[in-house]
Design a protein around this nucleic acid. Structure first.
Lengths: 123, 123
DNA sequence: CTGGATCCCGATTGATACTG
DNA sequence: CAGTATCAATCGGGATCCAG
């Protein structure tokens, strides 16, 4: 259960482990990244932007991020229904971290591109 | 298979997804954090510092980090055997990211401590 | 001490079908 | 459009045993 996950989290002392316990998984960071880039964001927009994710997973992950106080959900009683997601004030504190992660991802991509093109040359 | 994981990675364009593909899992970031704090670090020291990890997992994760060019391993033919792990030059580029992650973890812990004391006491 | 090889479980995830 | 429910399959990760 979810409540269990929360209980487990309370035992954690290491800040890194704590952050991981909230952000781990294939999708959380990408969702966060997408919402940081443009907020608010609708369900469908997220689904399109995060290639490979299924609606089921997107819903589940969004619920967890909401429960953890990082994003908030606003429902509009329109037809068809509209739901917007945006960062909470606390959620905005992830921005520097996300920036560094993205940044490092770029370095990593660049490095691997080089390694690949070298393949077997130089050394 | 591992080679497969590498192949998959080549298709990724999003930097965040790329970073996640290398760092995801329960242990990678904690291992990195431990080695950043003090380098070089021996196998046993890592095992002690990263509470909960088993030698099997520690080995597996270290191998992946090594393969991804983030850490390097040095073996000393002593009795008993000694192995030291340290960051590569590229591995050092994770420092700002790790700093932000740790930092955010601290904020998160602080927030949840408040939420808990509100929700519980006073009641 | 370091860590390779197996086996195995259960949480995580995906596919599908359905609803307000 | 924005989900929910269910079921099945996969895979990360733990336990155990073994070796240099």
């Amino acid at each position: 259960m979810n409540a269990n996950k929360i209980k487990e989290r309370e035992k954690i002392s290491c800040p890194v482990e704590y952050a991981v316990s909230v952000l781990s998984g294939k999708w959380k960071l990408r969702i966060l990244h997408a919402i940081i880039k443009q907020s608010p964001k609708r369900f469908k927009e997220l689904e399109r932007e995060i290639s490979g994710i299924t609606p089921t997973m997107l819903t589940a992950q969004l619920r967890e991020l909401e429960r953890d106080g990082i994003i908030e959900r606003e429902i509009f009683a329109t037809v068809p229904p509209t739901v917007e997601y945006r960062l909470t004030e606390f959620g905005k504190t992830t921005a520097p971290m996300m920036h560094e992660i993205k940044n490092w991802g770029l370095k990593l991509q660049a490095l691997n591109a080089v390694l690949k093109s070298n393949g077997k040359s130089t050394a």
